[in-house]
Amino acid sequence: MNSPAAPTISEEEFQKFRDFFYRKTGIYFEENKRYFVDKRLIERIKATDNETFRNYFVMLRFETSGKELQQLINLMTVNETYFFREEYQFTCLVKSVLADILPRKRCGEPIRIWSIPSSSGEEPYSLAIYLLEYWPQVNAYDIELIASDIDTEILKKARQGRYDQRSISHLPAHLLHKHFTTTANGAYQISDDLRNSIDFTQVNITDLNQMRIYRNFDVVFCRNLLIYFDDTSRRIAAEALFNALRPGGFICLGHSESMSRITPLFKIRKFPEAIIYQKPLR
């Protein structure tokens, strides 16, 4: 007996899926991503015991829990974190965003920056390093760096600050040498000074009560989180982020995410280095 034919995705099916996925996530696949998309779609068609793309798509489209869509998003996105990921946003912070914020600061008032989700700490530590190395006014202001995640285990890892080669591969060598030591088993341990410069806290961004204490931030980095939420949770999270920011505060999303597709609460600010979102001043 012949083994079952491998599933294929037709051009029309690809387009149908592409439109749907774009609407749900803001991620648009060009034609040159066909192989990448098809491979992952077929993997999920098989894993969910569907016989055809058509059957799988019906399940994906109407599944109330949205679990399969989440699975697919996980597969379709590069779900990894590393130091200096999407560095242009850090550059934007030190070259443009902070200069925009400073005129609104009262004397002695700290600059508050929030990284959520912090995951294992690469993003908040990158922020700390970037500020120390590339913001000339860093010593003239108090800066509070808060890093939050829903996962307490990942927070413990973040506080520990120990990383493998993959995590630090985008760091310039002189910064690696300056802020890390190498452990006996070849890992990279971030300095205690940096570890002690960040508040790590556990929070669920969609929990209104937990979120009440997160206020008065000048900048929030919330990258590659909202795409994993369903429509309702995304809306709740957007409200929570709005509440967390000071008027005029900024929010950086992942490169494939768009706040404008979620809510009109924020306005778009175009800086030379990046396009980010701002809570209106009034």
């Binding site: 010593n139 108090d142 508040d199």
Partner: peptide, 18 residues
């Protein structure tokens, strides 16, 4: 000045709600 840290624990709130 520069980077400052307020709390030493993961779970307690950073600020009291008012």
């Amino acid at each position: 000045m520069s980077l400052i840290k307020k709390s030493q624990d993961i779970s307690p709130p950073v600020l009291e709600e008012n």
